[in-house]
């Protein structure tokens, strides 16, 4: 039972948060939309005439846009595949009885707490460098030609680095979900003669379906915005081999100072992210009613 007084107090208490978020969302959003229709480059002094759909046209027809979309999909898809499947196995493994559970878990989860610039640079130099990196050293000592990771397989290298960060996230969430699984159900199934695969396929996987969906959706939101890992390893190269949509927009807005073009790209990125967001919001909203 809330009184009238507490209800008006509640309104006062919530308004700063609402106003701040409203401003944070609306002001830049409207500006992005507005800029995207202007011919506006910071390097050119003078007025910024209305340009219609010009920016969108040039942004979309640029060959690097096609490359960026493809790279974004490969990057997001690759990391999702590795982290979801890997996370599932890691979670099932970590849920089993063992010695030193706490310490082993923290070792698996630790990479998630490493800041992106550190993880990218450490992998790039200490592991993937063909001369001094550990992978190169091992390959050489076994008599193989060391792989030039960022020259030969740049996208796969970035996928690997990003997966190292996000595998712990998937593992942690799936492990949490797995722990709420009724052990008696598993035991009953086992007594009825269900093998490991059947227990996994018919009991564990359905129980985890929701958590897996959440992992995929949340990671997608974050993975669409991968930026630092690309910036410090390849700068989007070689060529446009590792330029994703986020990086492409960064290049046109802050390196080429093309405000109009960068904004048009921004609008496209927002639309793409929203498609994913709608699904995620539905999942979370359903949970709110429960």
């Amino acid at each position: 039972m809330s009184t009238k007084a507490s209800r008006s107090a509640a309104k006062v208490m919530i308004s700063p948060a609402v106003l701040l978020l409203l401003g944070w969302m609306l002001v830049p959003l409207c500006l992005t939309l507005y800029f995207s229709f202007l011919r506006y480059n910071l390097l050119q002094i003078g007025d910024t005439p209305f340009a219609g759909w010009e920016n969108y046209y040039w942004f979309i027809t640029d060959p690097s846009f096609k490359a960026a979309i493809k790279n974004t999909l490969v990057l997001v898809g690759g990391v999702l595949a590795i982290t979801t499947v890997g996370g599932l196995f890691a979670a099932i493994l970590l849920d089993r009885p063992m010695f030193g559970t706490g310490i082993i878990r923290i070792m698996v989860i630790a990479p998630f707490f490493v800041m992106p610039t550190v993880s990218a640079l450490v992998w790039k130099n200490m592991f993937m460098n063909p001369v001094n990196g550990i992978f190169g050293r091992v390959a050489t000592s076994l008599g193989f030609q060391p792989v030039d990771f960022f020259g030969q397989i740049p996208m796969a290298s970035i996928i690997m680095i990003v997966s190292w960060t996000w595998l712990p996230f998937a593992t942690l969430i799936l492990l949490t979900a797995l722990q709420s699984l009724d052990q008696e159900q598993l035991e009953a199934a086992e007594m009825d003669g269900a093998g490991w695969w059947n227990r996994f396929w018919f009991i564990m996987l359905p129980h985890l379906a929701r958590a897996i969906t959440v992992v995929i959706l949340i990671q997608t939101i974050f993975l669409l915005s991968i930026f630092a890992e690309i910036l410090v390893t390849t700068n989007g190269g070689p060529g446009t081999a590792t330029t994703n949509l986020t990086y492409l927009i960064y290049v046109s807005s802050l390196l080429q100072f093309d405000v109009g073009m960068g904004s048009a790209g921004g609008v496209i990125a927002i639309i793409l992210a929203n498609i994913v967001a709608i699904f995620l919001m539905r999942m979370i909203g359903r949970n709110l009613d429960a």
Partner: peptide
């Protein structure tokens, strides 16, 4: 609550230009 959550879904790069200029 849902609306607040939706602001988090906004990709940062979508508002990079205006925030940078502001």
């Amino acid at each position: 609550l849902m609306w607040m959550l939706s602001t988090k879904m906004l990709p940062p790069v979508g508002v990079l230009v205006p925030i940078y200029l502001i």
